[in-house]
């Protein structure tokens, strides 16, 4: 310790030089921190954008597409398979009336899904679509789909839910075949709307 007796010159200047800078640097860094916290949340919408570009998880658009009946690519036809599932806790019967269809890109096609609520309570459902391979989701355009809205059914009620779609003729040639899955979730407890609002469905059978 005896050694540390270098001539005392600049501690004060050193400190004075440092003090105001510190506040400035800290402020900048705190902004970076706040910005990155925000960025973490911004990743949520950004991810959806990436999904739209790249088709991760085979998510389809959540709003209706507008059909322009100009181009129909009759040179090839695409096979679309449908899978229906209900999630845990969802008592509905859910089936598709056409398990698989062949369709020309650009041509409008309609598929009917059947649902029945066997439970003794009213239930609101939400269908979540997923397409595999994911890339095909980018070319799947639905003009009408039960998955765009909540689907309520009263106890014991049944319904036919239509889905109308066309495949974008831009679909890459290597995709000749894809699968569209719908999973039905019971979201009654998540939403406050009354079950009487009937949307997008006609009485079945």
């Amino acid at each position: 310790m005896e050694q540390n007796v270098k001539p005392k010159t600049s501690i004060d200047e050193g400190s004075l030089r440092a003090a105001p800078n510190n506040a400035k640097t800290v402020t900048k860094l705190v902004f970076v921190v706040i910005g990155m916290f925000g960025f973490g949340f911004a990743l949520v919408p950004l991810y959806d954008v990436f999904c739209d570009i790249a088709g991760i998880n085979g998510k389809t658009a959540t709003t209706a597409a507008v059909y322009e009946p100009t181009l129909i690519d009759e040179s090839r036809s695409i096979t679309v398979d449908f899978i229906t599932r209900t999630n845990t806790g969802m008592p509905w019967e859910f089936s598709v009336q056409t398990k698989s269809i062949d369709v020309h890109p650009g041509k409008l096609a309609k598929v009917d899904f059947y649902v029945r609520n066997p439970a003794s309570r009213d239930i609101i459902a939400q269908a979540i679509p997923s397409i595999s391979p994911g890339k095909a989701a980018l070319y799947m355009n639905k003009t009408e789909c039960f998955c765009f809205n909540h689907q309520p059914l009263k106890a014991g009620e049944e319904a036919i839910m239509p889905m109308t779609f066309f495949i974008d003729p831009q679909l890459p040639d290597e995709i000749t075949y894809f699968t569209l899955q719908y999973t039905l979730y019971d979201i009654t407890e998540r939403v406050d709307e009354p079950v009487s609002v009937a949307m997008n469905k006609s009485q079945g059978r």
Binding site: N87, G89, M90, A119
Partner: peptide, 10 residues
């Protein structure tokens, strides 16, 4: 039917 959000499945 199970209960949604738990390990109790259908």
């Amino acid at each position: 039917n199970g209960r949604a959000g738990t390990a109790m499945q259908s």
